[in-house]
Design a binder for these strands. Structure first.
Lengths: 201, 201
DNA sequence: GTCTATAAAAAGATAGAC
DNA sequence: GTCTATCTTTTTATAGAC
């Protein structure tokens, strides 16, 4: 196995990406040095630059990988007629978001760290959040068109929901000994968003 | 003015802190170099180390300043008997949290960036979030003791609420041209948490 | 394509004059 | 206490042999 030059190159690139994903979770994107990645992958410093122009470039590649997966599992065709005030449908959205974040946790961590290093300002963060929650906003707009009363602007509400989920996802996704099960978290988020604190109406 | 040696030193320290707070918002904690701070404050590199041992030490000092303020304005005596299912009381909590974050935005930004640089893992983030929302958790526990039904574990719920508020605060606190007024955001968050998406019950 | 050795860049921290 | 000039450390990136 691993005979031809081309195959060996692909193996090296895969090994580097795998090592990077693991290290990003363990110690963060910024704290992970290129030499850490090459060492973990059993490769040399120089070899890294044969595959990636920089650490940021590696992150871009990982991001593209993620988008490929996400597209397959989720974005196929997503009608905006989903009713987020229906518990089952809301729960599905929460669960899918949760799962995507879980599957791509290394990339999410790295993106967050990279944003901090870049000095991303409030404006960029807001745009990112709005973009990430555009699907939710679409559903909320549809609900309002159907005569539903919502407690605020749909963009703001969608961002609030997304912020809640992503913060909890980051905080809770320790690899070992999670304090809550996925189902418990998804159910709690769903019910909080659905009924609010006043209890089942 | 600014005569004695002691006074001049205090002025320098204040100027460094002020410059740091401004730069942390403009370009983030990590991107802000010590020489940026000294330059902005009209001081020299060497002078910085007369007042702070490092950039991290400066952040600790700013954090202590913040805690001093927060203690005065908020923590005096906070009874846990507040009813978060009462709109007015919930709104007050949301508004106070929002205001504290707004007043200390430079420090919040710096803390977030520093955590990213340190490679803070999921476990640390979760502990931090639980700590920051312990007051909310107290109220929720009290509500449950009073026979209220809540949609999940109080620690998890409090963390979810805190995550929602802090994410929006970060995203929306651009210095210029805010897309929503403070009141609008606080009202929306309050109503979302209070009633959920099902509308006024 | 991969390796070792080394250069280059960036930022933090210090020494010593004033 | 503050300044200028310099040293050290850290990490990225490249050169050249294999």
């Amino acid at each position: 196995m691993s005979s031809s030059r081309k195959v060996k190159a692909a193996e090296t690139e895969a090994a580097l990406k795998e090592a990077a994903r693991r290290l990003f979770v363990e110690q963060g994107f910024l704290k992970t040095k290129i030499t850490d990645i090459t060492k973990a992958a059993g490769r040399s410093t120089g070899s890294f630059y044969e595959h990636f122009a920089s650490k940021d470039d590696l992150l871009v590649v990982l991001l593209l990988d993620m988008h490929g997966q996400a597209h397959d599992s989720l974005a196929g065709a997503h009608p905006r007629e989903h009713d987020l005030t229906d518990r089952a449908q809301l729960r599905t959205h929460v669960a899918v978001t949760w799962q995507v974040m879980k599957d791509n946790f290394p990339v999410m961590v790295a993106m967050r760290d990279a944003a901090a290093a870049k000095g991303a300002g409030a404006a960029e963060l807001w745009e990112q959040l709005v973009d990430d929650t555009s699907v939710l906003k679409g559903h909320l707009d549809y609900a309002r068109e159907q005569g539903r009363e919502l407690p605020g602007d749909s963009t703001l509400l969608a961002a609030a929901m997304g912020g809640l989920i992503s913060t909890l996802a980051f905080a809770l996704m320790s690899t070992d000994d999670p304090p809550y099960s996925d189902d418990e978290v998804v159910d709690t988020i769903t019910d909080l968003l659905l009924r609010g604190l006043r209890g089942a109406g």
